[in-house]
Computed example of a mutant assay.
Amino acid sequence: MQDVLVDMGPAFLGSRLKRLAERLQAGAMRVIEEAGLPLQPGHMAVLAALRGRALTIGQLAEAIGISQPGVTRAVGQLEKLGIVAGVPAADQRTRMIGLTPAGQAAAYRAATDLWPRIGLAAEEVLGGGGHGFLAQLTAIERALDQASIAERAAHASAGGLRIREFEDSLAGDFHDINAQWITAMFALEPTDRDVLEHPQQRIIAPGGTILFVEAPGLGVVGTCALQRTGPGRFELTKMGVRDSARGLKAGEFLLQAMIERAGAMGAELLYLLTNARCEAAIHLYRKLGFVDDAQIMAEYGARYERCNVAMRFAGLPAPPLAR
């Protein structure tokens, strides 16, 4: 099943973090329930902030970093549970909130039992990278303090596509982008799996290349490979673009870059194999100079069961095919 939040990349960061928070808090809720405390995960920050001191609603909001209405709602819930209560203040116009004896006992239980166990569980999930992850969260929060997403989006440009070269960290994108479109229309064949699972050995090492297209706010949205099949001969293969890039012309941008790269690599023959069902892709290939070629089909078409269309880039002279 397609994971929309993952495919949409940074544009859906807020939704993905919310989903992550819901999963983390669901686990924390079970730990709290098993401890017999009548509290929710959202109450824990208030409990931690009030340990050993009384604060106003405004001070609580600042300490926790959430809105005053949110703090007011949490305090109201905790008052009903007998966990917090108003305490005398020097200025009678100021309302101070502090822990009741029951709240102090709950805070002690949380600090000595719940929080350490939940923290250890979280560190295990982070796989030893907790400090780096938390530092990155802090950097995100500070960046948002300087300018909100709305402010930054108002000055952002929807263009800015750029090409990225293959590196090991992008092997997963190469696999997932292609596996998604192939399985949506056909079935992964053995030759597909071989190339997608071993791009370095099957594409790069024999003299080919893999390029990616990256879109602002979306990350890597498309990929394409040039597979060397003989001296001066290259197959344009494994080209796919995520649905999240629809309307950005990322496919055309990527294909143009790949054609230029093929020329720079000394290609004498640039061809591709596809299926008539890929109508949008075939339209794009023809737009950028590919033409149907029966000789290509005869020579290379048996590579894929689904292949019933073979094309050659007409911008290069057509050398005689190998016999």
Rank of each mutant, 00 (worst) to 15 (best):
A139S: 09
A122V: 15
F133T: 10
H131E: 13
R117Y: 08
G132W: 02
R142Y: 05
E151Y: 00
R117V: 12
G127N: 08
R109P: 00
Q104L: 14
G127M: 14
Q136C: 10
A121R: 15
Q136V: 14
T138D: 08
P116Y: 07
D145Y: 00
A111K: 01
Q104C: 14
G132E: 09
A122C: 10
L99S: 07
A154P: 01
D145Q: 05
G130S: 09
A150L: 07
L144R: 11
A147N: 02
H155R: 04
L114K: 04
F133P: 01
Q146N: 05
H155V: 14
L99I: 09
T112D: 01
I149V: 15
P116T: 11
G103I: 14
R109M: 12
A102Y: 03
A147G: 03
W115L: 15
H155M: 02
L144D: 09
I118A: 14
G132F: 04
G130D: 03
D113Y: 10
I149G: 00
G103Y: 10
R117T: 13
T138L: 13
Q136K: 04
A147E: 07
L137C: 11
L134N: 09
G128T: 07
E123M: 13
H131Q: 11
G103K: 05
R109S: 07
G130F: 05
I140G: 02
L120C: 11
I118S: 06
